[in-house]
Design a protein around this nucleic acid. Sequence first.
DNA 1: CACTTGACCTGTCCGC
DNA 2: TGCGGACAGGTCAAGT
Length: 301
Amino acid sequence: MPELPEVETIRIGLARLLPGRVVANVRVFDSPKSFPNVPSDVEHFLYGATITGVRRRAKVLLIELSTDYSLVIHLKMTGQMVFRSAAKTVPESGAGQDFAGGHPNDSLIGALPDRSTRVEMMFSDGSHLFFNDQRKFGWIKLVPTAAVELLPFFQKVGPEPLDKTTTAKLFVQRIRRRNGSMMKPALLDQSVLAGVGNIYADEALWAARIHPETRVKHVSDEQLLQLFEEVVKVLELSISKGGSTDKNYIDAEGRRGSYLTFANVFRREGQPCPRHPDVLIEKIRVAGRGTHICPVCQVVQ
DNA sequence: CACTTGACCTGTCCGC
DNA sequence: TGCGGACAGGTCAAGT
């Protein structure tokens, strides 16, 4: 589930917690796919390295090291990055006081490592960083920092929606490359625009009153310009709420996000559309994805 | 080339 | 209670 707001929330937490810490050791659990690096790189460029910064591009986290290598991390659907200070492997006191205001006993995570832990990083001060990933789709790669932008994903990924230099006009130009496809898959296409996933695609399309199955070519420039503004608004709102916790997303300190409390359509099938109290949100399938719409606000054009 | 579908995984939930 | 199947959704490879 981590989309841009979730990855950004994790980044904010890690950027506060990690810089200055020195990597002492790394344990890779059952899945080589989770951290497919040659041991000599780990030996030379990870052990003893000081963390110098934490960045994000699209849905990818970048942990920069003093050795001019970076840890490139994609959480895919169920990945988590959880920090634990000192030798503690249980939640910090105060964990559970999350963005959603949940009860501490509702914590989504307990002692670490657990059975979903794929990589555990130990720092010289005794603190730990855990990469958990129930479904093993995610990965961590150790890459020379200068080579990060040469990775295939970064070569083709589109502009950052929250970057001030990314304009609505640029978005329209890029999504027009997919004039033949439907709006939802075009919006999910990371080479058009970075960072939008299933939750925020549904929310933004509802806000812009565009049916997800409408072909891009049938949507006016004016509507596409508005859609971009809605994408920006929904991403910013979600970041301010710590992202969306649907099933298992948590931030670097184990807290849930509360955006779904504010969602208009996502996971709200059977509930009234905020704009039409008499109309119920429907769940349909578009391009293989669960998709939420108001059948009155959003009609195929 | 543009576009769509299936694979990658595991846990959960639903119907029988 | 057990069990098969659908579903969850980010990205890439393979297909049309």
